[in-house]
Simulated assay, not measured.
Amino acid sequence: MHLRISLRSVSKALSTASDATTKIPLATATKELASFLRDGGSNITVLTGAGASTDSAIPDYRGENGTYTLNPDYKPVFFQAFVASDEARHRYWARSFLGFPPIMTTEPNPTHYALAALQLPAPVQGPTLNVDNKSKVQGSSKSGYIRNFITQNVDGLHQKAGARNVIELHGTLHQVKCMTCGHEEDRSDFQQVLADLNPEWNDLLQSQSTSRLYTRMNADGDVELKTPEQQQHHQQEHSSMDKRLDYRTFQYPTCSCCGTGHYKPSVVFFGENIPPATKESTSQAILESNGLLVIGSSLATFSAFRLVQLAKQTGIPIALINLGQSRGDALADLRYDENSSLLLKAVAHELGLGDIPGTIKRRKRVMNVVGS
């Protein structure tokens, strides 16, 4: 049995000091990583964490501006509470209602596009990559470098960039599923259901006045709501006459299929079991690969760290790109304390894949839900 559990501080889990702060020149790192990919024989598995999406303005958990860094007291909604508590579901769906729109509209960054290019035998063409290159993939004699992706992220940005064979270790935000009968709905359709049930909240969302209701957005697409007292303080400071809203007033529907069950986002909550099929497929991907490339993950969740341990035990070479300390530093054969977008763009150029699309969007300390 594997639960999604997480260490708030990676450094506390390390018995010795990490060498993560040793900076390797970008040119050297580029040539080393290009050789690592060439040696993989088109059979590299890539494992990505929240750091792969920070250049799309989605915050991470443990980086300089991460959720746990800025708010050490932050507590996500745990699986057991969501299942058992009506109040916990009110809280989650209110937060998710405000936090989902930017996830839905966020674009991949150069890290996602570079990885898609490294998987496909043709240069990346931008957002329509997956459609435009179908014939090229089938008709080309050249193979790419990456076989499989395993991602801890729930944002769907790898697929949006055109990557294939993506295993979502912690599920996806883009669907919801009834906990009673298993009925699934698209999350964007469910967003409209929530909007119809909560017109006052939707009015705020549409008027871009939501910033007074939350302090920041988190990597899993929810926001940290202010209490009614904090909202009142905001009103006093900004002379706002908007109505204060309490998450306990936020309404959510029962299942449209069975009529009694409650929907849950199709993500693996903290404290929830990783599905057995996912656990098996990720392990198999590691065992069948010729190399593991870890990008943007502190590996604080055991569900991801165990895969790096498995690669090490199997004798598979490991390369790791992460800004700051990682739980897997001592296991990596190659370790780069570098921005993944900059390094992977350089590697793609070194391997003759041309220019990589996508822009780097720096996130704000407090993120506007609409128009961010």
Rank of each mutant, 00 (worst) to 15 (best):
Y74Q: 08
Q175T: 08
S35W: 01
T278A: 09
L7T: 03
T45C: 11
R164K: 05
A300H: 11
R95Y: 06
L299P: 01
L129R: 01
P275G: 14
E185C: 09
W201I: 02
A285W: 00
T30P: 12
F78P: 07
P275A: 13
L205P: 01
D186E: 13
T215Y: 03
K177N: 10
V176K: 00
T16F: 14
T28R: 15
S256C: 06
H2V: 14
K345G: 02
A195V: 00
E280T: 09
K134V: 15
Y92N: 06
D220I: 01
F79V: 11
T21L: 06
R187D: 10
S42N: 07
L14P: 05
I286K: 01
D73Y: 09
S35H: 00
S42G: 08
G315N: 13
R38M: 15
L292M: 07
F269V: 10
G354H: 11
A57C: 04
G49V: 02
E229P: 02
R335P: 07
D189C: 01
R244K: 02
D242A: 09
K134M: 14
F302A: 11
D19M: 13
V294M: 03
G40R: 02
T105C: 03
C255H: 08
T48F: 05
R327P: 11
G182T: 12
N165K: 12
E200D: 12
A29D: 03
V77Y: 06
N43K: 09
D329F: 03
D355R: 12
T254C: 09
N165Q: 12
I24N: 07
S283I: 05
N71I: 15
Q206G: 10
G354N: 13
T28P: 11
E184Q: 13
T172M: 05
P275Q: 13
A27V: 06
C178E: 07
H238P: 11
D19S: 14
N198K: 00
T260V: 11
N218P: 05
N133T: 12
A163D: 07
K312A: 15
L331M: 15
G259N: 09
G156E: 00
L213E: 01
S135R: 04
K264P: 05
D203H: 10
V131I: 15
G156L: 01
D186W: 08
Y145H: 14
T359V: 11
N71G: 13
A311N: 07
P59L: 07
K243H: 05
N368E: 08
S207G: 06
C255K: 03
N368M: 03
D246N: 13
G49Q: 00
